[in-house]
Computed example of a mutant assay.
Amino acid sequence: MSTVLILGAGPNIGLATAKVFATAGYRVAVASRSKPADLDSSYKHFKFDASKPESVPSLFGEVRATLGDPSVVIYNTAQATSTPDGAFTLGLEQFRNDMDVNTTSPYITAQEAIKGFAKTGPGSTFIYTGNKLNVLGWPSLLSCGMGKSAVAHMIRTANIAFPDKGYKFYYVDQRQKDGNVTIPVGGPAHANEFLELAKDAKQRPWHYTFVEGQGYVDFHER
Rank of each mutant, 00 (worst) to 15 (best):
G213N: 11
A9Q: 09
N159P: 11
N180K: 14
V4A: 11
F46Y: 13
S34N: 14
E93L: 10
L136G: 00
S149M: 07
T109S: 08
Y75R: 09
D38T: 02
Y167D: 03
A16T: 00
I74L: 15
K148W: 10
P11I: 07
R156S: 13
T209H: 01
A152N: 12
T89K: 06
A80W: 06
V151I: 15
P106C: 10
R33D: 11
K165T: 08
L92R: 09
A189C: 01
G8M: 00
A158H: 14
G130I: 06
K199C: 10
K19W: 06
K132M: 07
S82M: 13
K202Y: 00
D164T: 15
Q214T: 13
L39F: 13
A191P: 00
L92K: 07
A65H: 03
K52L: 08
S58L: 09
Y167E: 04
T17K: 09
T209F: 00
T17W: 07
A24C: 12
Q94A: 14
G213D: 13
V72W: 00
P70F: 01
F88L: 15
D49N: 14
N102W: 00
R96F: 05
G68D: 05
R64C: 01
H220I: 06
K119E: 12
M99D: 09
Y208S: 05
S32L: 07
S71Y: 01
G10W: 08
G121F: 09
V181W: 05
W206G: 07
K202V: 05
K199M: 13
V217D: 06
Y216Q: 04
P11V: 13
L90D: 05
Q176S: 09
T3D: 02
K165W: 09
T209S: 14
